[in-house]
Simulated scan of single mutants.
Amino acid sequence: MKYLINEYVEDFGNAGSKARRDISSILGRNGTVVINLPYDSKKSHFSREVTTWKTLRTFWKKDTSRDEIIVQFPMRLNKLDQLGVLNMLKGFHSKVIIIHDLESLRRNDISFVHSEVNILNRFDVVISHSDNMTKYLRQHGLTTQVRELYLFDYLANSRENDFGGVPTMKDEYKVFFAGNLEKSLFLERLPYSLNQMLYVYGLNATPKMTEDLSHFMGFVNSDELPNKLKNGWGLVWDGTSSQKPTGLLGKYLAYNAPHKTSLYIAANLPVIVWSGAANAQFIVDNYLGVSVDSLDQVQEKLKSLTADQRSKIVKSVAKFSAKLRSGNMILSVLRKED
């Protein structure tokens, strides 16, 4: 039997919790017992604490010596509840942890890495985003088995015929960007050629963005957004510069697998990624898009593709889109035997 610890994570409309929710849904649909840690904002902190520990204690009493437990990381729990979960792990035969973020990388603060690796080493298998993330963890003391995911799954509300067919890409030079725009200040400094091609969706646009962007489309819920992205490319970029991803978020692209990439591919869009991104080689090798050194190169890169290259990309994106929308990526990596 497989079990998944499912924490309550508030959704603020920016898709920040979607990857966690999708994994819980996918595993729950495929025979995993989802242990929902209760959360009720109307109750006192003490009352919530007691309810959480009662939930965990029921599993301390069970014989789980042949079972597998799956946890998502970082745990969004207070230290006492984290201690309860870590105690609960001891009774399970197999322990798997799926990384969503590493704060030591995301914040560029090495003081976090010791506690992160200490928790990860309590598990038998760590699901990492990429080779680069795995190397970073190994350099800081990770000793357990690691499997790389490269792309997160992306469940979406869609009508029967919205996905699954081969996209036509009739508008080959239309580009989409979606995200929390206050973290994407490069949108204030776009090359003119890209600005004319780019359709931007998201929350928290700056006044300069709303004024300067040629196609600012506003906010659409993350579950519905794939229905809006049709016949074009998806841009994965971060930071303040259009020349190279900069700042904490830009540098993080060298290690993580952005959920934005999965959004685009789930919507049958090939992607445009930074050449230094952690999954750039995976994207290129699997014909899921193209890589560029700077945003100045986007228009010329797309124009330079041959008909055969475009055809390979379109077919591969359609195949991976079906995988992401069915939860195949996380299911495959969990089934994998090293």
Rank of each mutant, 00 (worst) to 15 (best):
M1P: 14
K2P: 09
Y3R: 05
E7P: 12
D11E: 13
D11W: 07
D11G: 04
R20W: 06
V33I: 09
V34A: 07
Y39G: 06
K42F: 10
T55M: 14
T58S: 09
T58F: 09
S65P: 15
S65K: 14
E68D: 07
I69N: 09
P74L: 05
R76V: 13
Q82P: 03
Q82V: 14
L89A: 12
K90I: 12
H93T: 12
V96L: 01
H100N: 13
E103G: 11
R107D: 13
N108M: 15
N108A: 15
F112G: 08
V117E: 00
N118I: 02
N121F: 08
N121E: 11
F123N: 04
S128F: 10
S130M: 07
L137D: 05
T143D: 04
T144S: 13
Q145Y: 08
E148K: 15
N157C: 08
S158Q: 08
F163Y: 14
D171W: 11
Y173F: 15
K174E: 06
F176R: 10
G179I: 02
G179M: 03
F186E: 02
E188H: 04
E188K: 02
E188V: 09
R189W: 11
S193W: 01
S193R: 04
Q196T: 00
M197T: 09
M197C: 14
Y199S: 11
M209E: 11
D212K: 11
F216L: 07
F219Q: 06
F219T: 02
V220G: 07
L225C: 05
K228P: 07
L229K: 01
K230F: 08
G234M: 05
L235K: 03
G239Q: 02
S242N: 02
L249H: 07
G250T: 00
H259E: 03
T261V: 03
S262H: 00
Y264E: 00
A267E: 03
A267F: 01
N268S: 13
L269S: 05
I272Q: 02
V273M: 07
D285R: 11
L288K: 04
V290E: 04
D293P: 01
D296R: 01
V298F: 14
Q299N: 08
R310P: 05
K312V: 03
K312C: 10
K312D: 06
K319D: 02
L324C: 01
M329W: 05
S332G: 15
V333Y: 08
V333Q: 13
L334Y: 06
